[in-house]
Simulated assay, not measured.
Amino acid sequence: MKKILIIAFMALSFGAFAQVEPTFEKEGDMVKATYFHANGEVSQQGYFLNERLEGEWKMFNEKGDKIAVGNYENGVKSGKWLFWEGDVKKEVNFDNNRIASVTNAKTKEPVAVNN
């Protein structure tokens, strides 16, 4: 009985640490890439063009919550990126892959209130 429990535990342990292979789908000239956390949740999703990051990329934590979104142009971070850390949303502006500015904002406050 002890050996069966040990074997079952080892089998479950190996399954928990299994790597989830990324997926790649051709969409016109671009390739949509989806990367996964070990638990099967999506970790990143975006596009490649000519083997370089291109367009919008989204990042997620292990629970599936969005933690970042931004754009790449020819493999370089560009424009406004948004990062979520708990109740704080950070807007980071990139210029040629370098941080140009950072702004923090609370995310729990309503945008509009109906009276």
Rank of each mutant, 00 (worst) to 15 (best):
L53Q: 10
I7F: 15
A18H: 10
A100N: 14
V20H: 11
K106C: 11
K90D: 00
D87M: 07
K58F: 10
T103A: 09
A8E: 10
G15M: 15
R98P: 00
N61M: 00
F48M: 08
G55R: 07
A11Q: 06
V111A: 13
N96Q: 07
G55M: 06
M10R: 10
Q45C: 09
Q44T: 01
S13N: 14
R98G: 01
K90C: 00
M10L: 15
T23L: 01
A8R: 03
L53P: 02
F14K: 10
L12Q: 11
A38V: 09
N61K: 09
G70L: 02
K77H: 06
N93L: 08
S78W: 00
E91A: 12
K108T: 15
E62W: 01
N61S: 04
T107A: 15
V31G: 05
W57G: 02
V69R: 15
K26R: 15
S78I: 04
A11H: 10
N97G: 15
R52A: 11
L5N: 11
L53E: 11
F94V: 04
L49Q: 10
K106N: 13
L82F: 11
L53N: 13
V102S: 09
V88K: 14
V31L: 10
F48S: 03
N50C: 07
R98C: 03
S13Y: 13
D95Q: 13
Q45L: 04
V92H: 02
K66H: 02
G86Q: 01
K80R: 11
K58G: 02
G70Q: 08
K108C: 03
K2A: 10
F60G: 05
A18Q: 08
L82M: 14
K90M: 04
I7D: 07
V20F: 14
V92F: 03
K80D: 08
K80I: 05
V69P: 00
K63V: 01
N50H: 13
F48T: 04
G55D: 02
G86K: 07
V113Q: 13
A8H: 05
Y47K: 09
K26M: 12
N93F: 12
I6D: 06
N96S: 13
Y35L: 15
K108E: 05
G55F: 10
D95W: 13
K26D: 09
L53T: 05
S101F: 03
K77F: 04
V113F: 11
N74K: 14
V102D: 00
T23A: 03
D29A: 13
W84C: 02
N61A: 01
F24I: 04
I67C: 08
A100F: 12
E21W: 09
V111E: 12
K66T: 01
V20N: 10
K32N: 09
A100Q: 12
G28W: 05
P22C: 04
A68K: 12
F94P: 00
L5F: 14
K66E: 08
A38Q: 12
Y72H: 05
A100V: 01
E51R: 14
M1T: 06
N104E: 15
K58H: 08
I7A: 12
F36W: 06
K58N: 05
F14S: 08
K77M: 09
T107P: 03
